[in-house]
C-alpha cells in the first residue's frame, strides 16, 4: 500500500484526527480546513514576515507601559491607591500567597513576554540558514506556551474588579489600561497573522529561496 502513496511532501495529515490528505493548493489569504473534523490545516497570509514583525515590535513596545503604568486608581476617603499588573503580583506575594503570585506573574507577564520574544527571534532568524535550528527550537517553545498567556482573561479580570469596587470607592482608569488593551489586540492580531504552517515551511526551506514568506 505504501508504494501507491504520493511522496510525503504532497501529503498532509490533520493534526487533530489523523486524516491523510493530498496537500491542498492554498492561494493568498485562503485557508484549508480538515474535511472530517474542521481543524484548520493551512492558512496562507500575504507578507506574513513583514506584517508579523511589525506587530511583534508594536507589542513589545506596548509591553512595558501596559504592565507598569497604572491600570486603575482607587480613591477611598482621601487615600489613593493605584494598581498595575506588576503591583498585583507583588500584592499577592506580600500577602503570603507566593504560589498564586507566581501563577499570575507567569500568565499575565512572563509568558506573554516570552511568547513575543520567541516570535521576534523566529521572524528575524527566518532568512538565515545557520540560525534556523535555534529558531525551530524557540518556535516549539512558543507553541507550548501559547495558551498559557492570558492577557485577554486578565483584561476581563480588570473589568470585573472595577465593577466590584464601583460602589465602594471612586475609580479612575489609567493610561496602563489603554496600553494593556492595545497590547492584547496586537497580540491577537499577531497570532492570526503569523500562520504556523508558513513559519515551519520557511524554517525548513533550503537556502535557495525565501520567497514563500
Amino acid at each position: 500500500m505504501t508504494q501507491s502513496l504520493p511522496p510525503l511532501e504532497e501529503l498532509i495529515a490533520c493534526h487533530e484526527c489523523d486524516l491523510l490528505m493530498r496537500h491542498p493548493r492554498v492561494g493568498l489569504e485562503q485557508k484549508a480546513c480538515c474535511p472530517r473534523c474542521g481543524f484548520e490545516l493551512v492558512t496562507h497570509r500575504s507578507h506574513m514576515r513583514r506584517r508579523s514583525l511589525a506587530l511583534v515590535l508594536t507589542a513589545l513596545i506596548l509591553f512595558v507601559p501596559a504592565n507598569f503604568l497604572p491600570i486603575i486608581s482607587l480613591n477611598l476617603l482621601g487615600q489613593n491607591a493605584v494598581d498595575t499588573v506588576w503591583s498585583g503580583v507583588l500584592g499577592l506575594y506580600n500577602a503570603g500567597m507566593e504560589g498564586i503570585a507566581l501563577v499570575v506573574l507567569l500568565c499575565s507577564m512572563l509568558v506573554p513576554l516570552m511568547k513575543l520574544l520567541c516570535q521576534l527571534f523566529v521572524l528575524l532568524a527566518m532568512p538565515y540558514a545557520e540560525l534556523r535550528p535555534a529558531a525551530c527550537y524557540w518556535y516549539r517553545v512558543y507553541h507550548h506556551m501559547r495558551e498559557w498567556g492570558m492577557l485577554e482573561v486578565y483584561l476581563f479580570g480588570i473589568l470585573v474588579s472595577a465593577v466590584k469596587l464601583l460602589d465602594m470607592a471612586e475609580l479612575h482608569l489609567g493610561v496602563g489600561l489603554g496600553c494593556f488593551v492595545a497590547l492584547m489586540l496586537t497580540q491577537v492580531w499577531l497570532e492570526v497573522t503569523m500562520s504556523p504552517h508558513q513559519v515551519w515551511d520557511a524554517l525548513s526551506e533550503k537556502e535557495d529561496g525565501h520567497a514563500r514568506t
Binding site: I71, I72, L74, L76, A81, V82, D83, T84, S87, G88, V89, L90, G91, L92, A95, I100, A101, V103, V104, C107, S108, M150, V153, Y154, F156, G157, I158, V160, S161, K164, L165, M168
Partner: peptide
Amino acid sequence: MLDIFVIAILVALV
C-alpha cells in the same frame, strides 16, 4: 483564571 486575576487586582488595589 479570571477569578485569580480579580483577586490579584483587588489585593493590590484595596
